[in-house]
Design a protein around this nucleic acid. Structure first.
Length: 943
DNA sequence: ACTCGGTCCTAT
DNA sequence: TAAGATAGGACCGAGT
């Protein structure tokens, strides 16, 4: 193309753009077209560069339209209809800008003196506002002084709404009655603003600025003004993205407060709300709302928890209990209106509750060092902070790739998405386990960062991959190429160094440095930064491989990912063989070593030696000797010894974990019930306790006895309901399920009872299995634990015995105990079935309740009211028993009540909490029911 | 009684 | 429009 051709091309493109954007008033769509010399990142190419056209359009939003036109093809004189491959045309503008200016998320930027001037007309609510040419910005790498964290101003807030009875609050009906705010400077441990805005009067709260208003309108406007004044950089809260923020905005719209939704830093720019769903294999499907508040990062702690931690419940209550050992009362939304409609005292009560909901997210943010970890992740990967919660994993790798490519004068093509079916490739090898209970130490050898080191060792990259056609054509000398076990060809680094290996090298070197600096660091803030950094670097290195295999992503390259796994498979097999060939009696060792298991990057070896120390010595020797057989930087490391070791099956085992020969570090369990979220606590606790007794105490009879006691407790109905709650994630919307499952059916039933509080996609559903008709399926017998408690519905202990605890126990005990099944699941303890509370539904409604003898529970004839003829004469004794039963239960209930009062922070007010996640709540409710029952019994004596 | 596919969650 | 990967065990419902 000569300059005339380009100008011609420019004209045609401009015309097409005008057709597509008919309504846009812009003098010129295509601002300029330059001829540049670049190379595509795809495939090894001998030629250094080719001419490319760089097209500059007037507005960021026009890029995709322009891409569409070029994809479809345009008519060019003399060439006919031509379509064009576009490169980097789908890069989000913010990211494009940052990459071009060499700016990463969370870094420091200097605007040099004399290079900026005050704006003539203020466009923002920012504290400083000026004009500066983008190319004058100086971006500072996060080192030395510039690795420090900015003193972000963080607002944590929570709102309360007055819902109507039996309905979840809706912004079109229900008023916002309170808004609690805390403002904290990053790095300080106390908020410098603590206030609450209430509708109607509210009694004073120590240390809190209480602002009461007569109308809801005033509350909302006060909050809006507060935001402008405080000017927070980061807005946090719990579920603010899906609930609090959209609620405030929609409520203001309902009330016609047109000035409300100006919450960002751009003057007069209104906040917009969009429904959003996020869906990925890793994070699951989740519905949310996209609210744009310019210049302020929304950092929803709920999203953080769901992404970073695998928990069985994500309620603020449960999360706070888990991380802060601090409970929070869970007040049902229907009670909130009653508190609001009371007096200044009850509203104060509500305000305290609301403030706590604003306070806990800030505590979580501090405790988990989230600002440090997220800012470091943004710095390492280069994406803006907001992407880390709003986007997936792949944008982070892409950002690094784009930056590196720019440095190397490479461009990244927009490839069409391949079908999902052909996108399958073979993964890692899991060695066939020799299941059993091992009472000799098992040494574990691990490859360090296996996949990254494979990519580095064999120079696997987009730009080193040789197409099959080029393999034939180019005739590359064998010493310059690697043929991978999966049959692909990549050139070695002397011909072309891969940029993926280069990125990985930098990440891993940076991590080593961060870890070394961390050791030296004294200042706790500096430590937090460095620890966050090394974590971010590790995660980033590990996700590069996944990015290449992600078929529904920007730049899948299965040649790379399948080569990585194929080398991995070869290596684990090689390692197993080497260990078993070298460590033999013939080879001069005392025993023949045996690889009993291995998964992806590890092998478990029984060297046959009796002591941990000896196993460690051999493990180290093996690691060193085998590492030598691999190309750098692939390294096999000796990490730990398991002793004893219980190997159940692939991906399922337990053992004591030793890193030094004097004392074991911990009990380690993988894959079994103890680490899974979809088992009830009863199973988890039982299995953990048994493993503890077997592995640590070496007390198998003790474990057996414990099982027997537990089963007996279960069948006698002495089990706390909170131990029987099973939770499972709701991964798709109701209609998309193809088979009936307990948690899905329950969610559907709950939706019919109260649509607003029923679980949504992405939520976890807690349930228990209740008694049902004979042969009823589990999905027919699942029920909401709270509903069970409130309606006194009997649970099904047999289900828990047969479907929950028996198989996991047998899997553990069978390798250890002869006749495990007989020992554990048959015998007197399984026959002690109690008469459980009869169902209140169905046929039992019509049955006349007949009294039983207080002494021996036999049915009474109509003439007797308290005791049967046999028990008559024991009145004094049995009456005393009734009295003491009542008093015991009263005491128990009192203790639990006080505990709940302490939790809610007030000892002279009613307890309102109904938390599904709190064991105390279940016990308190049960004690209340039992107490009522015992009182009824006692009353019968008055005849 | 058995198999098979759907679902969930974990290991690496 | 955007969404890291595959291997694998356990359970359950549904069909044979």
């Amino acid at each position: 193309m000569n300059p005339d051709d380009i100008s011609h091309f420019h004209k045609i493109l401009e015309g097409k753009m005008r057709e597509v954007n008919r309504n846009t008033k812009v003098p010129k769509f295509v601002r300029r077209i330059e001829l540049v010399h670049k190379r595509s990142i795809m495939y090894y190419q001998q030629q250094q560069s080719h001419p490319f056209l760089k097209i500059v359009v007037a507005l960021p939003t026009m890029v995709s339209g322009c891409r569409g036109i070029l994809d479809k093809g345009i008519q060019i004189d003399g060439l006919g209809m031509r379509s064009f491959m576009t490169y980097e045309s789908n890069v989000l503008f913010a990211l494009r800008f940052m990459i071009d200016c060499n700016v990463v998320g969370g870094n420091w930027i200097e605007v040099p003196a004399g290079k900026y001037k005050k704006t003539s007309k203020s466009l923002s609510n920012c504290q400083l506002e000026f004009d500066c040419l983008y190319s004058e910005l100086i971006s500072h790498a996060a080192e030395g002084e510039f690795s420090k964290m900015a003193p972000f101003r963080i607002l944590s807030f929570d709102i309360e709404c007055a819902g109507r009875k039996g309905h979840f609050p809706e912004p079109t009906h229900d008023p916002v009655i309170q808004v609690a705010n805390l403002v904290t400077l990053q790095g300080e441990d106390q908020p410098f603003v603590r206030n609450i805005m209430t509708l109607n009067s509210c009694s004073p709260i120590v240390g809190v600025d209480v602002m009461s208003f007569d109308t809801e309108r005033e509350v909302l406007i006060a909050w809006k003004e507060f935001i402008r004044e405080v000017d927070p950089d980061i807005i946090i809260g719990y579920n603010i993205c899906k609930f609090d923020l959209p609620y405030l905005i929609e409520r203001a719209a309902t009330l016609g407060i047109s000035e409300f939704p100006v919450l960002g830093r751009i003057r007069n720019s209104r906040v917009r709300i969009k429904d959003a769903t996020f869906s990925s294999r890793q994070y699951g499907t989740r519905e949310s709302k996209e609210v744009t508040v310019e210049g302020r990062v929304q950092f929803d702690l709920l999203q953080v928890m769901q992404r970073d931690y695998k928990l069985s419940s994500y309620s603020l209550n449960s999360v706070s209990a888990h991380f802060l050992s601090e409970q929070k009362e869970d007040v049902h939304h229907s009670i909130i209106s009653d508190l609001q409609n009371g007096n200044a005292e009850t509203r104060r009560r509500l305000a305290v509750y609301c403030l706590k909901d604003a306070y806990l997210p800030q505590r979580l943010l501090d405790k988990l060092m989230l600002i440090y970890n997220y800012v470091e992740m943004a710095r390492v990967t280069g994406v803006p902070l907001s992407f880390l919660l709003a986007r997936g994993q792949s944008i982070k790798v892409l950002s690094q790739l784009l930056r590196k490519a720019k440095e190397k004068n490479l461009v990244i093509p927009n490839v069409k998405q391949a079908g999902s079916e052909q996108g399958k490739y073979e993964g890692a090898t899991v060695l066939e386990p020799k299941a059993g209970f091992y009472e000799k130490p098992i040494a574990t050898l691990d490859f360090a960062s296996l996949y990254p080191s494979i990519m580095m060792a064999y120079n696997l990259c987009y730009c080193t991959l040789v197409t099959p056609e080029d393999v034939r054509k180019l005739n590359l000398p064998p010493e310059c190429i690697n043929k991978t076990p999966s049959g692909e060809t990549f050139v070695k680094s002397n011909l072309q160094k891969g940029i993926l290996p280069e990125i990985l090298e930098e990440l891993l070197t940076a991590r080593k440095r961060a870890k070394a600096d961390l050791k030296e660091a004294k200042d706790p803030f500096e430590k937090a930064v460095l620890d966050g950094r090394q974590l971010a670097l590790k995660i980033s290195a590990n996700s590069v491989y996944g990015f290449t295999g992600a078929t529904v992503a920007q730049l899948p390259c299965l040649e790379i990912s399948s080569s990585v796994t194929s080398y991995g498979r070869q290596m684990i097999e090689h390692t197993k063989k080497l260990v078993e060939d070298k460590f033999t009696i013939l080879g001069g060792y005392e025993h023949n070593a045996e690889v009993i298991y291995g998964d992806t990057d590890s092998v478990m070896v029984q060297f046959g030696v009796p002591t941990v120390e000896a196993a460690m010595k051999l493990g180290r020797e093996a690691a060193e000797c085998i590492s030598g057989t691999f190309i750098k930087p692939i390294k096999l490391e000796f990490e730990k010894v398991y002793y004893p070791y219980l190997l159940i099956s692939k991906k399922r085992y337990a053992g004591l974990f030793w890193t030094n020969p004097d004392k074991f570090d911990k009990m380690d369990t993988k894959g079994i019930e103890t680490v899974r979220r979809d088992n009830c606590l009863l199973v988890k606790n039982l299995v953990t306790e048994c493993l503890h007794k077997i592995l640590i105490d070496r007390d198998v009879p003790g474990a057996v006895q414990f099982v027997k006691n537990t089963i007996s407790d279960l069948l006698m109905n002495r089990m706390d309901l909170s131990l029987l709650v099973i939770t499972k994630g709701l991964t798709k919307t109701g209609d998309d399920y193809e088979v009936k499952a307990a948690h899905v059916e329950l969610a559907e039933r709950m939706r019919k009872r109260d649509a607003a509080t029923a679980p949504n996609v992405g939520d976890r559903v807690p349930y228990v299995i209740i008694k049902g008709a004979k042969g009823a399926k589990a999905f027919e017998k699942s029920e909401d634990p709270i509903y069970v408690l409130e309606n006194n519905i009997p649970i099904d202990p047999q289900y828990y015995l047969e479907n929950q605890i028996s198989k996991p126990l047998l899997r553990i005990f069978e390798p250890i105990l002869k006749n495990a099944s007989k020992e554990l699941l048959q015998g007197s303890h399984t026959r002690s079935i109690s008469i459980s509370t009869p169902s209140t539904g169905g046929i039992m409604k019509f049955a006349k309740k007949q009294l039983t003898c207080i002494g021996c529970k036999t049915l009474l004839s109509n003439s007797d009211r308290t005791l049967c003829s046999n028990c008559k004469g024991r009145e004094a004794e049995l009456y005393c028993k009734s009295v003491s039963q009542v008093s015991e239960l009263e005491q128990l209930f009192g203790r639990l009540w006080t505990q709940c009062q302490e939790c809610q922070g007030s000892l002279h007010q009613d307890v309102l909490c109904t938390s599904r996640d709190c064991p105390i709540f279940y016990r308190r409710k049960k004690a209340q029911k039992d107490m009522a029952g015992a009182k009824t019994q006692l009353d019968r004596w008055s005849f």
